[in-house]
Each structure stands twice: as C-alpha cells, then as structure tokens.
Amino acid sequence: MDFIPTFDLHTFITAPWSDGLSGSIWILVMGFLVNAACGLVGNFLILRRMALVGDAISHSLLPGIAVVFLISNSRSTGLMVTGALAAGLASVWLIEFIHKKTRVKQDAALGVTFTTFFAIGVILISVFADQVDLDLECVLYGEIGWIGFEDSWLVMGTEVPIPLLQMGVTFLVVLALVIVFYKELLVTSFDSGLATSLGIPASWIHYGLMMMLSLVIVFSFESVGAILVIAMLIMPGATGALLSDRLPHILTLSVIFGGFYSLAGIHLAEWLNCSIAGAMVVSGFGLFCLIWIASPRRGLLVLSLKRLKQRSSEVSVN
C-alpha cells in the first residue's frame, strides 16, 4: 500500500538533510527549544498534579491571540504575548473562582472554562477569517515547518529567524528562572506547608509558575498549536520520571528528550510526509512507551520477570 512509504534506513536518515542544511537545521533547533522549555516547566506541573492545567491554559490563549489580531491587525509579538497572557491568566483565575465559590469540582471547572475560551477563539477566527492571519490548522497542529523564516536577524554572522530567537530567549529565561528559584519551586511543589514555614511565598511561586507556563505556551503556540503543546509539557518529565527519582536528573533528561523528539520527529515527518509537530509528539509517545516497557528499573518487562521469579521461587519452596 502506498499510503505508508517503503522504509529505507539510508533515505530515512539522509532525506531531511539532502537539500542543504539550512531548512531542517532551524526546524531542529526550534523543535528542541520548544520541547526543552516546555519540558522544564512541565516537570513542575507534573509534581503539582496540574498536568491538565497546562492543557487548559494552552486552549485558553486562543481568544486572547485572536482578539489581538482583530484589534491591531498585525503580528506584533509584544501585543500577541500580552493578549495571550491576559487570556491565560483569566482562565486560571476563572477556574479557581468557579472551583472555590461554587460546588462545581475542580475537574469540571477546568473542563467548562477552557472549552469555553477555546470555542470563543475558534468562533473569532472563523467568523473574521479574512482579518485574522491565523488558520485553524495552525491551532490544531502548528506550523513549525514554515515559521516566518523570511524575517531574520544577523547573529554572529549567520541569519537567524526571529521566531527562533524569541524561542531561544524564552528557553534561556525559563532555564535561568528554574536554576535561580530551584529550591523554592522544589519545596512548594512537594510540601507547601513546609514552604510557608520557611517563609517562601507559595502563592507567588504558584502565580509565577503560571506566568512562566503561559509565556512558554505563547511562544510555542505557532510552532505546535494549542493541543500538541500538552505533550511537550508532560511527556519529557513523565518519561524522565520512569528512569529516575531525582528531580535534577529528570530535568536534565527532559532537556535531552527534547532534542531527541525534535530530531526523530523531523525524520519521521520526512519519511511519512506528515505534520512535523505531530511527528515529534508521536516519537515522544513512542519513546515513552519504549521506556515504560523496557526501563531497567521499573519497566513492565522487569516487573513481569520479577513476578515470574517470585512465583517460581514460591513453587520451589512449596
């Protein structure tokens, strides 16, 4: 069947790089930056059991971005970030408000809020389609393949696309914040009571984390869309947690996984001729499943082997 092209290892490896380095290398770097920045922030979401809050925020940004497009009619980054941040924080506030002021439970409050925001965003985009320079396909799976490479800045003699610079700065800011506030983030994630007794303002850290999350999602939005970004947030950390119990190790691992997703995704997308962002997440999911099954410490294989041994030793004792 010609739906799935024949697999040839040599072409699989060389195809993305055959027409010069320039195209694929930027996609690779962009993918890495998105995955790594999201992965770093995502680890703290996993620890706080707020994985789906990331999903909620990423859906909620849409009306903010759409409204900014409608008002300003431009792709000005500052305005877009402001609009998206406002929408994201509004949704976080609204979820908390519904959850605390009414009898609706948190999961339902989350579900109601982000779908409403997202629906409003989709309506704005489709009703004002001619005024909003944003199509629904971008919302669904991003456009990492052709992000504004026409605009670029000269950095150290090479032309670097502007979106990539923005993502690079975002990644560095996230990295710096995680390193500087590592202790605070750690303590508030594991034991908010202890954090308060140490004098760490837990609610400030919480809102800071939410800000950081919104920022990362805003800049990742055009690359991977509103839905796939949840994978970038959760998968690296969850996969890392299968391999280690130490947070510094998991954080390092999630940055490395970010690179792997990006590289594997590009090759997969080239082979299958499909969405690059989608392929990155598929390879991330594949890696997760692989480690889940074959992890040397707690993988399914090791667990079932142990269980077999136990059973056979029980039999021999009897």
């Binding site: 994985a51 799976y141 839905i227 796939l228 994978a231 969850a238 299958l272 499909c274 989608g278 997760f288």
Partner: peptide, 25 residues
C-alpha cells in the same frame, strides 16, 4: 508511579498526535 492527570495528558496528546500524522498523510 505517574499520576492520573499526567497519564491523561500523555495519552490525550500522544493519541491525538498519531491522529494528526495520519490526518496529514
């Protein structure tokens, strides 16, 4: 030892991504 919310996030996005790839193909 992955919590349920993370597990849902992984499956949600993983399956969705497979669907997106098939869809674009």
């Amino acid at each position: 030892h992955i919590k349920e919310d993370s597990a849902m996030g992984i499956v949600l996005s993983g399956f969705y991504a497979i669907g997106i790839c098939l869809h674009t193909m």
